[in-house]
Design a protein around this nucleic acid. Structure first.
Lengths: 221, 221
DNA sequence: CGCCGTTTTGACAGGTATCAATACCGGTGG
DNA sequence: CCACCGGTATTGATACCTGTCAAAACGGCG
C-alpha cells in the first residue's frame, strides 16, 4: 500500500476551480480529503445540470476513459489526494483485490445515482427540496456525532442556491419559494443562506413523499 | 470459459413477468439474449419510475448485494442467459480479467445513467420525447443494418405509452400530445402505437435540444 | 460604509398534471 | 370471417405548478 503513496500527492483547489473540464482528457483521479466537488454536465442550450456531488472519502475522476464526459468543479475549497490516472490504472491491474473493491463501490454508486434520478424525475419540487434537506441533515448529524453532544439539528448545505437548483433540476427562484414555505410552516428555520435548523423532521419527511427508510438509505450513501 | 456454461442456463419469461422484485433477495444475474427488461423503482406514493432499460447483450442483476433495490420486469417476452448470483461472483473472483471488464462496463453505464438523468431533468417533455425517439431510431437502424437494405427509417419502440411516460418522467396524456404534435409537424408518421416512421431527422434533433453528437453518443451506449 | 453578488419577492405566461370522456386496436369466441 | 369486449391510446377542459423576467432586499467583503 506504500506503493500508492509513491504515485499520489495532495493538491488543493480554491472554490470555483474546474478540476477537470467536460470533454477534457481524463488524467487525474483520486480521493477527496476535504471539501465538496460537483459533477456536472452542460448541455447545448447552455444550462448545466449537476449530476452528482462528491464528499470527503469519495473517489473522483473517470477511470479507463480517454476523456471525461462531465466536469469536476470545486464547490468549496477542496483538498484532494490526487493520482495520475494511468498510474492508478496500472496499480489496479497489479492489485485485483483493490479493483474488486472499486467495482463494489461503483455498483453502489450506480444504485444511488438511479435512485436519485427516480426522485428528481417523478416528484414535485417541494418533494425534492424536502428530500435534499433531510439527506443533508443526516449527513450533518453524522458529522456532529463525533463531537459527542446532542447537536441542535443544524444543517449545513455548502452549496449556492443556484447549485442546489441545478442539482434538483429547478431554478433558484422556485427553490427559494419552497424553502421559504417550509420556513413559514415551521418545519425548518433559516439561519443564513447555507445553514438551517431542522425543527420538525417528521413534517419534512412527509413533504418528501418518501418513507423514512428510503431517505435514510439515500443519506447513507 | 466453458466454466460459465456450467453455471448458466437459458430461461424465458413472458411479457409482464417480474424477474426480480424491488427489495427481494438478489439471486439471479446474467445476460439478456432477447427482449427488453425495464429497471424500475416504486416510491412510497405508489407511482413508479423506470430508471433504465436493458436490451440484448446487456447484463442484468445486482452483484455483491443481498437485495435488489430495483425491480427487473420483462417488457416484452424475454430470453435470458441466467446464472446464480453467488456462483457468478465466485467465477469473477477466479477471473480478474473478467471482473476488470465488468468494472469498465459499469463505469460506462454510470456515465450513461448520469447523462440520461441530466436530460430528463433540465429539459421540457417535448425535448425528452424527441431525444427518446431519436435514440430508438438509431438503435433500430443498427438492427436493420444487418438486413442489408436501406430501411425506410422505421422506428420500433417496444414499450407501452405508460412505460415510456414512466421512463421520461411524465404522464401518458402529455406524452401522447407531444407525439401527435410531432406527427402533425410531419417530423414523424405514426404507423401504430409502437411503430413510427422518421420523416425529418434534423427536425427531430432540433426538437431535442441536444447536438447530433451528444445524441449519437447516448444512442451508442 | 459602500459596493456587488446572492437571495428573495412579485407578477405573469406557458407547460404540465389531473380528471373525464371518447376513439382505437387486438384478441376472443361465435 | 365477423362481432364483441377490454385495455390502451387519444382528445378535451381546467387548475396548478413552475419558469421567466424584473425589481427589491439582504449579506459579505473590501
Amino acid at each position: 500500500m506504500a506503493q500508492l503513496n509513491r504515485i499520489s500527492h495532495v493538491r488543493k483547489f480554491v472554490r470555483g476551480t474546474v478540476i477537470q473540464g467536460q470533454g477534457e482528457v481524463s488524467d487525474i483521479v483520486g480521493n477527496i480529503v476535504e471539501g465538496v466537488v460537483k459533477l456536472s454536465s452542460a448541455s447545448a442550450s447552455g444550462d448545466d445540470h449537476i449530476v452528482g456531488l462528491l464528499f470527503p472519502s469519495d473517489f473522483f475522476g473517470r477511470l479507463f476513459a480517454e476523456e471525461s464526459q462531465f466536469s469536476y468543479e470545486a464547490v468549496t475549497d477542496v483538498t484532494l489526494c490526487a493520482m495520475n490516472r494511468s498510474g492508478f490504472e496500472r496499480f489496479l491491474a497489479d492489485h485485483p483485490t483493490v479493483e474488486h473493491e472499486m467495482l463494489k463501490a461503483k455498483l453502489d454508486e450506480l444504485d444511488a445515482v438511479r435512485e436519485w434520478a427516480a426522485i428528481t424525475n417523478g416528484h414535485t419540487t417541494m418533494q425534492r427540496v424536502a428530500t435534499l434537506l433531510y439527506v443533508f441533515s443526516r449527513r450533518s448529524r453524522n458529522q456532529h456525532r463525533e463531537g459527542g453532544d446532542a447537536s441542535p439539528s443544524v444543517v449545513h448545505i455548502p452549496l449556492s442556491r443556484r447549485d442546489i437548483a441545478d442539482y434538483l433540476g429547478t431554478t433558484p427562484e422556485t427553490l427559494s419559494r419552497n424553502i421559504q414555505t417550509l420556513a413559514r410552516a415551521k418545519v425548518i428555520r433559516i439561519i443564513n443562506a447555507k445553514h438551517f435548523e431542522l425543527i420538525d423532521a417528521n413534517a419534512l419527511i412527509s413533504h418528501s413523499g418518501e418513507t423514512r427508510e428510503d431517505l435514510n438509505r439515500i443519506a447513507s450513501y
